[in-house]
Measured scan of single mutants.
Amino acid sequence: MEVRTIKVFTTVDNINLHTQVVDMSMTYGQQFGPTYLDGADVTKIKPHNSHEGKTFYVLPNDDTLRVEAFEYYHTTDPSFLGRYMSALNHTKKWKYPQVNGLTSIKWADNNCYLATALLTLQQIELKFNPPALQDAYYRARAGEAANFCALILAYCNKTVGELGDVRETMSYLFQHANLDSCKRVLNVVCKTCGQQQTTLKGVEAVMYMGTLSYEQFKKGVQIPCTCGKQATKYLVQQESPFVMMSAPPAQYELKHGTFTCASEYTGNYQCGHYKHITSKETLYCIDGALLTKSSEYKGPITDVFYKENSYTTTIK
């Protein structure tokens, strides 16, 4: 009895394709271990004539594949690729409408935090270190965002349907971005203890939790000093293409032309909904596939993004 075979390709990165001759009487799992086709788990399936010449994702289970996976995804987590594939199996079914010149995501599976993050990423200057993220990001900007969303979920250790947080998501993504040249110098002034300067680099240099107003941050924000008295913390120097200011959701007025974009969060910790506000020729609110415009805006804002380049204080 002759062994019926077909020729397929296996890959971990969709760049390096490895030619395989597979036995049609055995499952993919018996031949390769966990195997995925377009995100779908085909591990328990036997090869079919229609699979001839198709590319299958496999887990990096030998040295060659491990090197290829690390170079593309910059992670050695053995569960990463499987999590990416199972997320992709959902995100490829989502709709990605162009809204006001940006790629958004039609609401499904509690994905409003991903839509808000995706919209924000198209408006701030950011370059990702893992080629996987950078490639998928370019495709997302062009309207094909399924891979990018699935990668975000995998890097953030999230599953489809789980509630997510924009600030946490951005923080994970910033860790995989090139923020080497970003720098922030802060000064804390206390009447009792004097003053202390701190220099922050990388992710810490672009994120701040405690106030939404970048102007206020430049002037000074009140913080408790270690001595128990009130101290003032203010920005001395900022070198970065953008800054992200966050605070627990509270009524906040966004003035046209003073910011790049913002995240609105309605609801409580267990259950809520994100919308995205962007400042173009007027203010726009993007909620999944829905767009509304207004000249002014007041609502429960939790993150505001500002364009920056270089700032030095005039406070002496």
Rank of each mutant, 00 (worst) to 15 (best):
E2V: 09
V3C: 14
V3R: 13
T5I: 09
T5N: 11
T5R: 13
I6R: 07
T10V: 14
V12S: 07
N14D: 11
I15E: 08
I15M: 08
T19G: 12
Q20D: 07
M24D: 15
T27Y: 10
T27F: 11
G29M: 13
Q30D: 12
Q31S: 12
F32Q: 13
P34D: 07
P34G: 08
Y36L: 04
Y36R: 05
Y36D: 05
L37F: 11
D38M: 10
D38A: 11
V42N: 09
V42M: 12
T43V: 08
K44I: 15
K46E: 13
K46M: 09
P47G: 08
S50Q: 15
T55F: 06
V58T: 12
P60T: 06
P60K: 04
N61A: 12
D62W: 07
T64V: 14
T64F: 10
T64W: 08
T64Y: 13
R66C: 12
H74W: 04
H74A: 06
T75A: 13
T76M: 14
D77V: 05
R83A: 09
R83P: 03
R83K: 14
R83C: 08
Y84C: 02
Y84F: 10
Y84V: 04
M85T: 05
A87E: 06
T91Q: 04
K93T: 13
K95M: 12
Y96G: 04
V99N: 06
V99S: 07
L102G: 05
T103C: 08
S104K: 03
W107I: 04
D109K: 05
N111C: 00
L114N: 01
L114M: 09
A115E: 04
T116I: 03
T116G: 06
A117F: 00
L119M: 07
L121Q: 00
Q122W: 02
I124K: 04
L126D: 05
K127S: 13
N129V: 08
L133W: 01
A136H: 13
Y137C: 07
Y138I: 13
R139V: 07
R141S: 10
G143K: 01
E144C: 09
A146Y: 06
F148W: 03
A150Y: 00
A150F: 02
L151N: 01
L153W: 04
C156L: 08
C156W: 00
N157L: 01
K158V: 02
T159S: 15
V160Q: 02
E162G: 06
E162C: 04
L163K: 15
G164W: 03
G164N: 02
R167C: 00
T169F: 02
M170C: 11
S171T: 12
S171C: 15
Y172K: 13
F174Q: 03
A177V: 08
A177K: 05
L179I: 03
S181G: 14
K183V: 09
V188G: 03
V189M: 11
C190I: 03
K191M: 10
C193A: 02
G194C: 00
Q197A: 07
T198Q: 13
K201T: 15
K201H: 11
V203K: 11
E204R: 14
E204V: 06
A205S: 07
V206Y: 02
V206H: 00
G210N: 04
L212N: 04
S213N: 11
E215Q: 07
E215N: 09
K219I: 11
K219E: 08
I223D: 08
C225Q: 02
C225N: 00
T226N: 13
T226G: 14
C227M: 01
G228H: 00
K229N: 13
Q230E: 10
A231L: 03
K233R: 14
Y234H: 07
L235H: 02
Q237A: 13
E239K: 11
M245W: 02
S246I: 00
A247I: 03
A247T: 06
P248D: 07
P249A: 01
A250W: 05
Y252H: 12
E253R: 07
L254Q: 00
T258M: 11
C261M: 06
G267C: 07
Y269E: 15
C271V: 10
C271S: 10
H273M: 00
H276C: 08
T278Q: 09
T278C: 15
K280M: 09
E281N: 08
T282G: 14
T282F: 09
L283R: 00
C285V: 13
C285Y: 05
D287I: 03
G288T: 03
A289N: 10
L290H: 12
L291D: 07
S295W: 10
Y297M: 06
Y297W: 10
P300Q: 10
I301H: 00
T302G: 00
N309P: 15
S310M: 15
S310L: 14
Y311Q: 15
Y311M: 11
T312C: 09
T312L: 14
T313E: 12
T313K: 14
T314A: 12
T314V: 10
K316M: 15
